[in-house]
Design a protein around this nucleic acid. Structure first.
Length: 501
RNA sequence: GGCGACGUGGCCGAGUGGCUAGGCACGGCUCUGCAAAAGCUGGUACAGCGGUUCGAGUCCGCUCGUCGCCUCCA
């Protein structure tokens, strides 16, 4: 069965056919790094990570681009008295905007790794592509789909719609209605010709920290522009998959499409994929009414919403239990169920590796056929718009066979060697490569290994200091390590270390 | 107000008009020194009403309810 994906643009499942045989270009809207990454964000990135992983599993050569928004994302009344999210945070904390960006970008990366998301192939930043963005604004102006007012440049939505007729296609919106409705909250929008127009270059107010020279003013790019520019730069005018959270459909993605077509006449992506929201208590998480929980709180268990800590892998598994286009309601009970399910799943894999079968069946058997059918259905689940819920369900059914084989309730003479191999191959590939699940023990082992490597290096450096009678450095290292419960023991033969309880 | 999505057994959650989704929790049984794990097994769900159909959780309509987007949001 061929891979099918649900295309938000056509509102249908379509057979996936990449533009270039064997290759896939995928762009996913990344975070604006002005605060800690929120759990809902994490769900979206986990969803697209699995999509990326599955495409790789199918043998595609994928270029996965996920941006970092570090300028231009406004909050408040758009286009006028609005403030850039990063600038605002910088002002409040009295830091350089780039310090804010660096801090939260680091935190974002750490969290992505903790959830075992693969790194994208390219992670471009908006501030690193100002020149390209200015060029795109110029292209749009040259094509007549934008106009300059007082140093700011606005996209001419009405003209674009009159000539191209595609504005609103993705989000199912009618431009006429949009213009009507926005008339009520028109305040401070005198610069725009039409309420639905949006800024692509914004003249910076004197106190605005992030600013670049351009032909129109010293200013900064509009938020929607960066994705248009960077996807074009790294994936071409038209590429295969564009992803993001459901709430970005409008206006962000709608405007992105308008900009791309306005600049070069081509729509950016063939397939638009949108991940649904993560809910808590049946509602979208929101910081303002306390209906929120952070990943860190889940790890520590420090939240009134949960009874105990949950690991990143359990949370990842929990997310995979639902389809990415469905809303998912997080709760303590659901997480507990996920934890059990996750442990069970990892146990199947362990049993598969441990068992040493002898005496296979020579030819097809009913049990073997049932197993092979389930294996096929697992693949079909993923082929059907990345339905991880179905794939996991089928694997649990297969897991039951694995348990039976292990408990000798089903004998290896009931399946063929080939079936056994397929079963092993499936579990290894799906749990690790596709779902990106790893055992927490494995993680701990890896940390332990890293610690040993680090300690080797530290002891070598300290040994060098001691050889030079640099007692200050050597003692400093020993004292610092003692504080984190690592004891150094010096002897004639050199130094060793151990943990103290 | 406009656009859209959804309402599945105690909980989470799949579901292409006809065949047991799955996980968790709960009950019974097997195994077991005890426990756990595992296996077998049980409750017979699709918001309500009407329609289409030989047949609907799945299609259509209405009602009720929930949620999202429409301003920044993954």
């Amino acid at each position: 069965m061929a891979l099918k994906v649900y295309n938000s643009l056509t509102r249908r499942k379509e057979e996936f056919r990449p533009l270039h045989e064997g290759r896939v270009g995928m762009y996913v809207c990344g975070p604006t790094v002005y605060s800690d990454v929120h759990l809902g964000n994490i769900r979206t990135f986990v969803s697209f990570d699995v999509i990326y992983r599955y495409l790789l599993h199918l043998g595609y050569k994928v270029r996965y681009v996920r941006n970092i928004t570090d300028v231009g994302h406004l909050e408040g009344d758009a286009d006028t008295d609005a403030e850039d999210k990063i600038s605002k945070r910088a002002r409040l904390e009295q830091l350089e905007p780039m310090e804010i960006v660096q801090r939260y970008m680091n935190g974002f990366h750490e969290m992505m790794h903790r959830f075992n998301n693969l790194d994208p192939n390219i992670e471009p930043r908006a501030t690193g592509h100002i020149i390209e963005q200015i060029q795109m604004v110029q292209d749009i102006l040259d094509n007549g789909y934008a106009y300059v007012v007082n140093g700011s440049v606005y996209f001419d939505t009405k003209k674009f719609q009159d000539e191209k007729g595609v504005y609103g296609q993705l989000s199912g919106r009618n431009l006429e209605e949009l213009m009507q409705e926005s008339r009520d909250n028109l305040k401070n929008q005198q610069e725009k010709r039409h309420p639905a127009d949006f800024a692509i270059w914004i003249k910076a107010a004197p106190e605005h920290l992030m600013r670049w020279p351009s032909p129109w003013s010293v200013g900064f790019p509009g938020w929607h522009l960066e994705c248009s520019t960077m996807s074009t730069k790294y994936l071409g005018h038209t590429f295969d998959i564009h992803g993001g959270g459901n709430d970005l459909k409008f206006p962000h993605h709608e405007n992105e499409i308008a900009q791309n077509i306005g600049a070069c006449g081509q729509a950016p992506a063939k397939y638009w994929l949108h991940a649904n929201m993560l809910l808590m208590n049946g509602k979208k998480m929101s910081k303002s009414d306390g209906n929120t929980i952070t990943a860190r709180q889940l790890f520590t268990g420090d939240s009134p919403h949960i009874s105990k800590p949950y690991s990143a892998m359990v949370i990842r598994y929990f997310m995979l239990m639902a389809h990415y286009r469905s809303t998912l309601d997080i709760s303590d009970r659901a997480l507990q169920a996920a934890e059990k399910g996750y442990q069970k799943m990892m146990n199947y894999l362990r049993l598969l590796d441990e068992m040493q079968p002898a005496q296979f069946a020579a030819e097809a058997t009913p049990a073997g056929e049932a197993i092979r059918r389930l294996i096929r259905e697992t693949h079909e689940g993923m082929d059907d718009d990345f339905n991880t819920a179905v794939a996991i369900a089928k694997m649990h059914e297969l897991g039951s066979y694995i348990n039976k084989l292990h408990a000798r309730q089903l004998d290896f003479s009931q399946i063929t060697a080939e079936t056994w191999d397929e079963l092993k191959t499936l579990f290894r590939a799906f749990i690790g490569d596709v779902f990106g699940l790893r055992s927490e023990q494995e993680q701990a082992d890896r940390d332990e290994q890293a610690l040993e490597t680090l300690m080797d290096i530290i002891l070598q450096l300290r040994q060098k200091a001691r050889a030079q009678k640099d007692w200050e450095t050597s003692d400093k290292i020993r004292d610092a390590l003692a504080k984190i419960n690592i004891r150094i023991k010096d002897s004639k033969d050199g130094s060793t270390w151990e943990r103290i309880a």
